[in-house]
Computed example of a mutant assay.
Amino acid sequence: MINYNGNLLAENTPFLDHRNRGLRYGDGLFEAMRALNGKLIFWEDHYLRLMASMRILRMEIPMNFTMEFLEERIMETVEANGLDRAPARVRLTVYRNDGGRYLPESNDISYIIEADPLAEPFYVLDGTPYEVDLYKDFYVNKDMLSNLKTNNKVLNVVGSIFAEENGLQNCLLLNGDKQVVEALNGNIFVVKDGHIKTPPLEHGCLDGILRKKLIAILKKLEEYSFEEGAVSPFELQKADELFITNSVVGIRPVSKYRKKQYHTTVAQDLVGKLNANARLA
């Protein structure tokens, strides 16, 4: 079951057409998050990011679009899919309503909620081999739109195809200054001698929820130093550890970049702290 503007529909129900602005222009946003036993993980952060992003895109925020209203609609969808007592992946998509070409006829919005099962209730560190390389065919723009979780993900799509064609599990994206920005599906963290670094938002990376949570955790830990700073491809070869973060997977360690092999010591330490933070949220 999916939720379309508050109405629960079977997944095969036709409810969008060729006029949809998300299809035509990528004129939409989405939040992907975890739900567990009827509770959304880091929901307030996802909600605030969505509201800020809608304002940036000049979308009209409905009066009833409160955090409580959307949470109720999401949990209705989770329950309708039989996932209220299980871990679930939730996607909330918001897009501008039909009408107009580049210039919309209205800034009113519609929304879609989806829920799918997840294998694990908490963030679990996957220790299987995970090789990455740089994707250099196209680049991320260094601007605020790149910080948003929009429906315009063509770069991530073609990058994912490139990764599969080359036997990779992921790719790292660069901006026009050839700085490492993020992975195809999350933010990137680099570890060297107890110092942890992630690219700053002004370099074009996604303003990720897990990125934000992990930064807050790291700033309280005395055993690590932390920095938001430029990451060059050269640094990847010198790093002790690389890992990718997103709200659904949590922390995903990278095992190999070209000839460089990485360990997972810091990632193993942080995933437990992240789970504790999620339980308290």
Rank of each mutant, 00 (worst) to 15 (best):
E71T: 11
L50G: 07
M51N: 00
T66M: 10
H46D: 02
W43I: 02
Y47G: 04
L40Q: 06
G82N: 07
R58Q: 14
E68K: 11
R73D: 08
M59L: 12
M54Y: 09
R58W: 08
W43G: 04
F69N: 05
T77R: 02
A32W: 04
S53M: 03
M51W: 13
P62G: 07
N81Y: 02
L36Q: 10
A80C: 02
I61P: 10
E31A: 10
G82Q: 08
H46T: 05
T77H: 08
M59N: 08
T77K: 00
E72D: 14
A35W: 04
E72V: 07
R73K: 15
M59D: 03
M63D: 14
T66C: 06
F69R: 08
V78Y: 02
V78G: 01
N64S: 12
E44A: 11
L48C: 06
R58D: 14
F65H: 06
P62V: 05
M67L: 08
L50W: 09
E68Y: 12
F65M: 13
M33D: 04
L70K: 07
L70V: 13
A32N: 08
L36Y: 15
K39Y: 10
E44C: 01
M75N: 14
L40D: 02
N81L: 01
E44K: 13
E71Q: 14
I61N: 04
M75F: 13
I74C: 10
R49I: 04
R73T: 04
Y47P: 08
M51F: 12
L48I: 05
T66N: 09
A35Y: 03
V78D: 00
A35D: 00
N81R: 03
N64P: 06
L40R: 06
D45G: 12
G38Q: 05
L36P: 04
V78P: 02
M63N: 11
Y47D: 02
N81C: 05
H46V: 00
L50P: 11
L48W: 13
S53G: 13
N81S: 03
M63R: 13
I74H: 10
L40S: 08
M51S: 05
G82I: 04
L57R: 11
H46Q: 03
E71G: 12
G82A: 06
M59V: 09
H46N: 02
F42M: 00
M67P: 10
V78A: 01
L70Y: 09
L57E: 01
I56A: 10
I56L: 13
M67K: 15
R55G: 14
E68A: 12
R34M: 07
L36R: 14
M67Q: 14
A52V: 05
A80F: 01
M67W: 07
P62A: 01
G38C: 06
N64C: 10
L57C: 12
M51V: 15
M54R: 04
F69P: 07
E79G: 07
E71V: 07
R73M: 13
F69E: 01
R49A: 00
A80N: 03
M63Y: 15
A52G: 11
F65N: 06
F69D: 00
E60I: 09
G38N: 02
A52F: 09
E71F: 08
R58I: 00
K39L: 03
